[in-house]
């Protein structure tokens, strides 16, 4: 047998080791890439999503009222799980946002309508964050994301520290004055699991609100996301909401 020169031996070993190391490193990287690039609803069925069509909202406030009735949200003192903001953008770029009683009882007439450049309604609710700040800060694990993508509160284990209320970038949480726990939109989880739509979707007269299963490509929300230009709120925060808006003006925060 011919003897292998030392230089060749070292070269061979090094290249073999490098190839093996690269192969070993590539597998988890490929897996991680797939995991983080792929939307979560490819992994779990069903996976709930919500869409709002701002161009259809007429600001009637039926959703706010329905949500309160369905979920026993306190009327006195007044709290909301969902509310509708009215944006009034004047021609001189002055912006006014109001939401008296969450929009439940209507809005006062707009003064000087001839100076209005643009005005519209923006319904707000839980943004169904994929990376929820509220879940991360809860010290007792009382707020959590379910397997089907909904953020909920365990009322028995919530200690009422209000940390999550501070953490929510969208201001959708409040402190329930009677139960003495944090409370928030649950996208009517009890209704979804019974095959019904949320109370706000049920009450919406114009179809401006939609709830559905993102894991089903034929569902109303999947179709809506596919056929329209949709945006999320505060995208720069990396919360990756599953609540998307169509016709979102750049002034909306």
């Amino acid at each position: 047998m011919r003897e292998l020169p030392r230089r060749d031996f070292l070269k061979l070993t090094a290249s073999a080791l490098l190839t093996a190391a690269a192969a070993a490193a590539a597998a988890p990287v490929a897996w991680a890439e797939k995991f983080y690039r792929e939307p979560p609803w490819r992994r779990k069925k069903p996976y709930w999503g919500f869409c709002v069509d701002i161009e259809k909202c007429i600001g009637c406030g039926r959703c706010v009222d329905a949500c309160k009735t369905e979920n026993d949200v306190p009327r006195e003192p007044f709290y909301v799980r969902t509310w509708v903001e009215r944006y009034i953008i004047r021609k001189d770029n002055e912006i006014k946002i109001d939401s008296p009683n969450g929009g439940m009882d209507g809005y006062p007439p707009v003064e000087n309508p001839e100076t209005v450049a643009k005005s519209f309604f923006v319904p707000k609710l839980c943004n169904l964050c994929e990376n929820s700040p509220c879940v991360q800060v809860c010290p007792v694990g009382a707020t959590f994301k379910t397997e089907d993508g909904v953020v909920l509160i365990d009322r028995k284990y919530c200690i009422g520290c209000r940390y999550c209320i501070q953490a929510c970038p969208y201001g959708t949480r409040y402190f329930h004055p009677i139960l003495q726990v944090a409370d928030k939109c649950s996208v009517c989880y009890h209704r979804l699991r019974r095959g019904k739509v949320t109370a706000c979707v049920e009450a919406c007269p114009t179809g401006a609100r939609m709830v559905g299963d993102l894991s089903d490509p034929q569902s109303n929300v999947s179709k809506f996301r596919e056929n329209n230009k949709v945006q999320t709120l505060k995208a720069n925060m990396g919360t990756e909401p599953k609540l998307v808006y169509k016709g979102l003006d750049k002034e909306v925060r």
Binding site: E70, D154, K156, S186, Y189, H190, A199
Partner: peptide, 11 residues
């Protein structure tokens, strides 16, 4: 517990 909450809107 959350799933068992009462439904008010029949649909």
């Amino acid at each position: 517990e959350i799933k068992a909450l009462p439904v008010r809107y029949a649909g």
